[in-house]
Amino acid sequence: MSNALLEVSHATKVFSRGGLLSSRRIVAVNDVSFRIEAARPEIFTIIGESGSGKTTLSRMILNIEQPSAGSLVLDGTDLSTVRSNRDRLAFMHKVQPIFQNPFEAFNPLKQLDRYLFMTRQRFSAAVGQAALEAAVDEALRKVGLSLKEVRHRYPHEMSGGQLQRVAIARALLSSPKLIVADEPVSMVDASLRMSIVNLFRALRDDLGISIIYVTHDLATAYYISDRIMIMQNGRVVESGDARTVLNAPQHPYSQQLRAAVLLPEVTGGTAPANSPST
């Protein structure tokens, strides 16, 4: 068998929620397995019900959360063995996160350019200021920004869409092999959404980066994914080639999901289909 970049085997995560007396056991992720080949970078999409365990699974892949059962192996390293700071740094070199809410991902008191410089310095040996600035500028340009636009600015001075692009640039600074993006485009406009997913495609094709793309947007999922996995209630209900699955979903939940997509068009006669009910 060829090498796996990521091998998730029977990953399970159990939480308990609520007060001492009313505590409930919640199986957030229930026996999930899949693998991503090292030799074949791909965009692997996870969609599913709200509360079905997508974020919990992503957090396990990022080693922020440990599985209750099962294992996750990245590039030959079992994540449960990543403990020391050195191991962590090596791990973060390979896997980078992008979160849904970029405002949570940045320290509100730190200027963005300084934060990017520090990130870069953590991952590469000491270089001069000029090289540092060039590297940061290059990463920002890959996402349609530039160092000039970001210099001296604080996170709250950017809109959601701008900040999300800074987050992607930050992820690129470590030259990762895998990016785990949890709902990365839900805060940006349709046009920018296309620029960002096109950027993911370019990262896959030009830089050989695999991307785990968690989303509720079936249209962009169809547009860029190689494979797709559909989750409900902690379990995988269907998975396979993205287009095959989305064109003809087999599981009842996948079918329900497919049917609930709101098309960006107004149907009906010449009168507005949804004029006020008055």
Binding site: A190, S191, L192, M194, S195, N198, A219, Y223
Partner: peptide, 14 residues
């Protein structure tokens, strides 16, 4: 610029 399931037209950002 809006993509749809089932169409393969390349869409570009602005």
């Amino acid at each position: 610029s809006l993509p749809r399931i089932g169409d393969d037209i390349q869409r570009k950002g602005l």
